[in-house]
Design a protein around this nucleic acid. Structure first.
Lengths: 210, 210
DNA sequence: ATTGCAATAGGGGAAAACCCTTAGTAATGT
DNA sequence: ACATTACTAAGGGTTTTCCCCTATTGCAAT
């Protein structure tokens, strides 16, 4: 019996997921949570093998929740359940310690397969994710060089809220020039050519929520 | 017994929804579809009271699917099931003939309630939607004045793809000045102050998909 | 018929974004 | 100790966005 917990802030999806997985004999849904914080505060008393984790969530997101959960229970296995497939996005989640990655448009058989595979000590990644990984391996446009720094992420989030360079500078107590540098480093690293593309990219890569 | 169909391209969510609703005695899930086209081509042979319709879908979206479905079966009742709450978005769906509007973060009880209400001939709108409607009624910032024209929608979609004014002008065979006029009319009507905010607004209002 | 609006397009100008260079400081890792 | 990197900031420049203004054409509604 595989003991599984679910963390997802979309109630309808979460309720459905519980029922879907209850149909699989080998899987036992222990509990489901609507937020990362709720899950973390329960983690000590929780006897689970695997947690299915949504990435985009209000409050603590899936990446942060995974990092904190792994700090408490290093053996916990995390499968990310997500809407989009984008670069730094899944890389962050893998770095945080996720063993699997399933898209929400996948079916129950695929999710079941992912849970089995991860339970046995393996990894599972959706076809779409594997393609992305393969492409970034070929292009070499991945990993560290293109990772945003903390400050850059902060600036990116303000850009996505619609703040101008001047406003960002004021709100972070920086000079406009510094913010300009961050902006252009963000554009370079994300390989986007303007703010419109950057905002879409940021949403897809989970730097901001909509 | 209320006969219900589901149209949603996220398989896991759809499968979950089927199981959630099967728990409610009064509801019978007749069939579920992963696309608008699939649903429409089956509609003639389908004996259902209500269809739960996702708005954001690959191919035919929920609004288009609803319009076409109502043309075939005017008595069909549609409940939109969606992620976001934004202005023109739900207005379009209501104009297309939807009787209800439920957020994906709602729970099964709320969804059940919505189905019952719409089946009895009423309407059901999530609290969040009602708030939006009330606000736009007070502010008067709704309806026609702020509705984007076809050309504006076309320009908006190109903006969201990251094209500059110059590139948009070239691709639509217009002068840059004309595109500039469209841009600022779009910003004025959407009440957003720059491209970053506009892109987020466009995604929320279903003018573009991410 | 006239009013209204969408769509077209121009002039002109202020502000913001974008791109290049250089450069110092502080923290981190080998 | 030394290299690397994040963060800071400036000078100086081009391009783009954004905001006024005016103006014509053509379609549609009353």
């Amino acid at each position: 019996m595989i003991n599984v917990a679910i963390v997802d802030d979309h109630e309808l999806f979460r309720e459905g997921l519980v029922l879907v997985l209850d149909q699989i004999d080998e899987i036992n849904i222990v509990k489901d949570y609507c937020s990362g914080n709720e899950f973390l505060s329960d983690l000590d008393n929780l006897n689970i093998d695997i947690v299915l984790m949504d990435i985009k969530m209000e409050g603590l997101n899936g990446i942060e929740t995974t990092q904190k959960a792994k700090a408490i229970k290093p053996d916990l296995k995390v499968i990310a359940v997500t809407m989009f497939v984008e670069d730094s996005y899944y890389m962050q989640m893998i770095q945080a310690g996720a063993h699997g990655f399933v898209l929400k448009k996948a079916g129950k058989y695929e999710l079941g397969q992912a849970i089995m595979e991860v339970y046995k000590g393996g990894n599972y990644f959706s076809q779409e994710i594997l393609q992305k990984m393969a492409l970034s391996a070929i292009g070499g446009t991945n990993s560290k060089e293109n990772q945003l720094s903390n400050r850059e992420i902060e600036v990116l989030q303000l850009i996505c809220k619609g703040l101008s360079t001047k406003e960002i500078a004021e709100s972070l107590f920086l000079s406009q020039k510094t913010v300009e540098v961050h902006r252009s480093n963000i554009l370079r690293k994300s390989e986007q050519k303007n703010i419109a593309q950057l905002v879409i990219w940021a949403v897809k890569n989970n730097y901001t929520s909509i």
